[in-house]
Design a protein around this nucleic acid. Structure first.
Lengths: 111, 111
DNA sequence: ATGAACGCTACTCATTAAGTAGCAGTTAAA
DNA sequence: TTTAACTGCTACTTAATGAGTAGCGTTCAT
């Protein structure tokens, strides 16, 4: 099996430069990637409970995303299920800041 | 025409809570959303040059993403083409921080 | 009036995700 | 020692989304 792994340093959808940010935007721009990362914020989750928290996302896709995130060393699968790696935790902090920001965005950007 | 607009306060793919972060993750998790926002970082771009910078993405999809981002008040279309709104600029700052972070991630997360 | 740029829209075809079923492995209790 | 409930998946079919290409109706400068 040849997996479509996202690896910084290698070309990526719509970019041949291999700049890390491109790899990252490609990875996170896939359906459910961001959401899955977000749902792990309070600690590891099993495959099935993560699936449930993502609104009963199809296991096919969830599994694909999890493999990609694992290949990217953002999550791993250990005791308690899927959880952040050290780098994943750093990325999650960025998401937490986005969460705070999104409140303001929601309050006054629309209407 | 009924557009699939992402609006904080309204339910979204895989979530019925309407939390702003859910709307945001859904919006940004669509293909080319993040990339398009990223490519506007140095100033407004025309539809066609934005398309070019995204690796000749199909105009159909680009247009859809741009409409969504416009509806979300993250970009607008004025002199010089598509550019950030005030909120869009704030979001872009988050992306800039991700860019900085991704360098470290690339350096020591893989191999 | 011609050409070049603009922002699109309309198609067809390919890829991706959704949705549902179920399997093989582990654990723990009866 | 089978039963039950969990685990992480995989295999399918169908639906939705994106890719790819052509070209239209503007505006602008020549």
């Amino acid at each position: 099996m040849t997996r479509k792994t996202i690896t910084p340093g290698r070309p990526v959808r719509g970019s041949t430069t291999g700049r890390p940010i491109m790899a990252l935007l490609d990875l996170l721009g896939r359906r459910w990637s961001l959401r899955a990362l977000w749902e792990l914020r309070d600690g590891p989750l099993t495959f099935r409970s993560l699936q449930e928290r993502c609104g009963d996302i199809s296991p096919t896709v969830l599994n694909r995303r999890l493999q990609e995130l694992r290949d990217a060393a953002l999550i791993d699968h250990g005791d308690g299920g899927y959880g952040y790696t050290a780098h994943g935790r750093e990325l999650a902090e960025h998401l937490a800041r986005l969460d705070a920001w999104s409140g303001r965005w929601a309050r006054d950007a629309l209407r």
